[in-house]
Design a protein around this nucleic acid. Sequence first.
DNA 1: CAATAGTCTAAACGTTTGTTCAGCTAGTGA
DNA 2: TCACTAGCTGAACAAACGTTTAGACTATTG
Lengths: 234, 234
Amino acid sequence: MSSRSRGSIELSADDGLFSDDRTTRARIRDAAIECFAEHGVARTTARKVADSAGVSPGSIIHHFESMEGLRVACDQHVAAVIRRQKQEAMSAGTGIDVLAALREANIGWVAGYLAQVLAEDSPAVALIVDDLVADAEGYLQQGVEAGLVRRTANPRGRAAVATVWSLGALVLHRHLDRMLGVDLTDPGVGTDTAIASYAGPAFEILGGGIFTRDYAAHIQSAFTASQTTNEGTT
Amino acid sequence: MSSRSRGSIELSADDGLFSDDRTTRARIRDAAIECFAEHGVARTTARKVADSAGVSPGSIIHHFESMEGLRVACDQHVAAVIRRQKQEAMSAGTGIDVLAALREANIGWVAGYLAQVLAEDSPAVALIVDDLVADAEGYLQQGVEAGLVRRTANPRGRAAVATVWSLGALVLHRHLDRMLGVDLTDPGVGTDTAIASYAGPAFEILGGGIFTRDYAAHIQSAFTASQTTNEGTT
DNA sequence: CAATAGTCTAAACGTTTGTTCAGCTAGTGA
DNA sequence: TCACTAGCTGAACAAACGTTTAGACTATTG
């Protein structure tokens, strides 16, 4: 039951990140990413990936040495795709929201994959997050210089918290979908009008905060005064 | 390996939510909660729980019918503990931050448990989240009436987003710990001065937002004008 | 052509999983 | 004292897991 399309690798024109892609190794990797995104890492077995890719379980080991190796390869591939997508988005100048750059049509599965693996501690995923935070800090700095973003005494901390909040919403997409009726892991969420039920409150908070100006100043002074007590929220 | 105290859950004298607790069934449940919080749900096996509780694997089935039943019982127990803790905190009037009410000393393991199970779709956990959002909406409404919190056209959406962001930071505690040096699942995080590295930027965003006032108004108008295009971030 | 290396399959391996089962112990009531 | 029930154990169970292995097929090279 081989696909006998040995000669034409470049069948998928806009898919391969590199020229020698879409081999059996690439098909196994893509099937694994799909399984990881859909069922989670723990519930993805070697036989499921093999069936989905149309190969035997032994072929996975032959190409990736072990299931852990397959997992690492998937993480690295997703990281590479994200990095390329960000570079393309950077030249186009989309904006500050790091997730907006990932909502492109052809990489909609990236959101689902990240939602499943962000909670686990993988070195490759940690690199992705670190990159996203660094990029967010850069974007925010550009926004500050353009007069669009407020200055802060802790740019890195602000970028880290904002990015983690954004990614956390991705991880908890089921709860958001249940409460607001929009699934952030849905590939077509960018073109859906229902995204406003999430983006509306989100940008409202990012725009003007939650607290009134007087109370916000009170909290800020409480933080600068004594850092030992973290609850000045009466 | 573990801390000096034999068991963080077992030693709390006022733990039992009901009078007929602390039976073998309760010890199994507490050991399972500890295993779930420490190693995650997928990596928690029946034999690990049995060894941790000092019983045989068969005893787990005898009390909970199956591992899934144990999982449900743990979810429901944690939900009950959170609900009781919130009621106690409500009379004391701690504040808006829903997580602050959960950082009490004797229930520090709740944060670790939630961090592990929030990403999975469990009905009991969904009820916890829904309750947290409803409580947050109530607290925010009280803040609005007290002049501490801004008014909003979408109170429920704002409460949902703020709660999910807060819980998302809990789920991604490893990334926050790596970047900011503070672990939100650490039971003693409330008394640690390092919490400011997270709470500082967090309250800065919740206080005044990220964008400048002019740009925030521009975003808001872009949202009210056309809901089809979600990226007005230039 | 023969030899070699790479690719992939089907079957099987050993381990670990959740669960079952027969039997032991302790407490209770008649 | 006997019978009974609940609690619990330790061994064993089938199923599923990741991985190994022997061999077949294909393409390349001499």
